[in-house]
Lab assay of single mutants.
Amino acid sequence: VTLFVALYDYEARTEDDLSFHKGEKFQILNSSEGDWWEARSLTTGETGYIPSNYVAPV
Rank of each mutant, 00 (worst) to 15 (best):
D35P: 10
G23C: 06
L7V: 07
L3C: 10
T14S: 13
S41V: 05
W36L: 09
T47N: 05
G48F: 03
A12Y: 03
G48E: 00
L29K: 05
E11S: 11
E15I: 11
L29F: 07
Q27K: 09
Y49A: 06
Y8L: 09
S19T: 09
W36P: 06
L7W: 03
A6N: 00
E33R: 15
V55R: 00
P51L: 07
R13H: 11
E15N: 12
F4P: 00
Y8M: 10
T43M: 10
K22N: 04
S31Y: 13
W37Q: 03
Q27Y: 14
D16Y: 15
I28H: 01
Q27C: 12
R40E: 07
K22E: 08
K25W: 15
L7S: 03
E11P: 05
Y8W: 14
L18K: 02
W37C: 04
L42I: 11
A56T: 12
S31V: 11
G45D: 06
V1F: 12
D17C: 10
V58K: 04
A39G: 06
G45N: 09
G23N: 06
N53C: 13
T14P: 03
P51K: 07
T47S: 10
L29H: 05
I50E: 00
S41R: 14
E15T: 14
D16K: 15
P51R: 07
T47W: 08
Y49P: 02
Y49M: 14
A56C: 08
L3V: 14
P51N: 09
L29P: 05
W36A: 06
Y54R: 07
Y8V: 07
R40A: 05
V55K: 00
A39M: 05
F20N: 00
N30C: 08
G48D: 00
L42N: 04
F20H: 00
I28W: 02
E33N: 15
S19I: 02
L42K: 04
L29Q: 05
S52T: 06
D35V: 11
Y54G: 06
G34H: 12
S52G: 07
T14G: 15
E11A: 10
S32E: 12
A12V: 02
L18A: 02
E38H: 14
V58F: 11
T43Y: 09
K22F: 06
N30S: 11
L3P: 06
V5H: 05
H21K: 15
D35H: 11
R40V: 10
E38G: 05
F26T: 00
D9R: 04
L42H: 05
T44W: 03
L7I: 10
S19Y: 03
Y49L: 14
T43I: 10
K22A: 12
H21M: 12
E24I: 02
A39F: 02
I28N: 01
G48T: 01
I28R: 04
D9E: 06
F26P: 00
F20R: 00
G48Y: 02
Y10R: 04
N53R: 12
D17T: 15
Y10S: 03
S52D: 03
I50F: 01
H21N: 10
D17R: 14
P57N: 05
N53E: 10
L29N: 05
G45P: 01
E33I: 11
D16R: 15
Y49H: 07
G23Q: 03
F20M: 09
T47Y: 08
Y10A: 02
D9Y: 04
A39D: 00
H21R: 14
A12F: 03
Q27N: 08
V55Q: 01
V1E: 15
V58S: 08
R13S: 11
V1L: 14
E46C: 11
S32R: 10
G23D: 06
E46Q: 15
E11Y: 09
L18N: 01
T2S: 12
W37F: 08
G23R: 02
Y49I: 09
E46I: 11
N30A: 08
Y8N: 06
T14I: 06
E38V: 15
D35Y: 14
D17Y: 14
Q27H: 13
L18D: 00
S32M: 13
Y49F: 14
V58P: 04
I50R: 00
T47G: 03
R40F: 09
V55I: 11
F4D: 01
D9H: 06
A56I: 13
Q27F: 14
F26M: 07
S32T: 13
V1Q: 14
D17G: 15
T43W: 13
L29A: 05
F20C: 02
P51S: 05
W37D: 01
E33P: 11
F26S: 00
R40G: 02
K25S: 07
T43K: 13
N30W: 08
Y49W: 14
S41G: 03
V55P: 01
E15L: 12
N53F: 09
E15A: 13
V55G: 01
V5A: 05
G48N: 01
N30T: 09
S31D: 14
E15F: 11
L7F: 03
H21E: 09
T14R: 15
S52Y: 08
E24W: 08
S31N: 13
E24P: 00
N53S: 14
I50T: 01
T47L: 08
L7K: 05
T2P: 14
N30M: 07
Y10C: 04
E15S: 13
D16M: 14
D17A: 15
Y10K: 03
S19M: 03
S31F: 15
G48L: 02
D35C: 12
W37M: 06
Q27P: 00
F20T: 03
Y54A: 13
L18S: 01
A56E: 12
E11R: 09
L29I: 11
S52A: 12
A56H: 09
S41L: 07
F26W: 01
F20Q: 00
L42G: 02
Y54H: 09
N53D: 11
T14L: 10
L42Q: 07
G48S: 01
G23V: 01
T2C: 12
A39E: 00
Y49S: 06
E46P: 00
S41C: 08
T14V: 07
I50V: 09
K25R: 13
L3Y: 13
S52P: 08
W36S: 06
L18H: 02
P57A: 10
D16E: 13
S32V: 10
A39N: 00
A12I: 02
V5I: 13
K22Q: 08
G34N: 13
S19L: 02
T43G: 07
H21Y: 12
Y8S: 07
G34P: 14
S19A: 07
W36F: 12
D35L: 13
A39T: 02
E38P: 06
E24N: 05
A56Y: 09
T43V: 10
S19F: 04
K25T: 12
R40N: 04
D9I: 02
A12T: 05
T47A: 07
A6W: 01
E15Y: 10
A39S: 03
W37E: 01
E15K: 13
L7A: 03
D17K: 14
L42S: 04
L3T: 09
P51H: 07
G45Y: 07
H21T: 14
V1R: 09
N53Q: 11
E11N: 10
T47I: 14
S19C: 05
G45Q: 07
G45F: 07
E11I: 13
D17M: 12
Y54K: 07
T2M: 13
D16I: 15
V1H: 15
L3D: 07
Y49G: 04
N30P: 05
Y10W: 09
L18V: 05
I50M: 02
G45A: 05
E11D: 11
F26H: 00
T14H: 15
V5R: 04
E11Q: 12
A12R: 08
T43R: 13
A56V: 14
E38Y: 15
F4A: 10
Y10D: 00
A39H: 00
A6G: 04
V1I: 13
E38W: 15
V5G: 03
S52R: 13
W37T: 03
N53L: 09
Y49N: 08
I50Q: 00
W37V: 06
V58L: 12
K25L: 15
T2N: 13
N53G: 11
G23I: 00
S41F: 03
A6M: 01
I50K: 00
A12K: 08
T14K: 14
Y54P: 01
Y8C: 12
L7N: 04
Y8D: 08
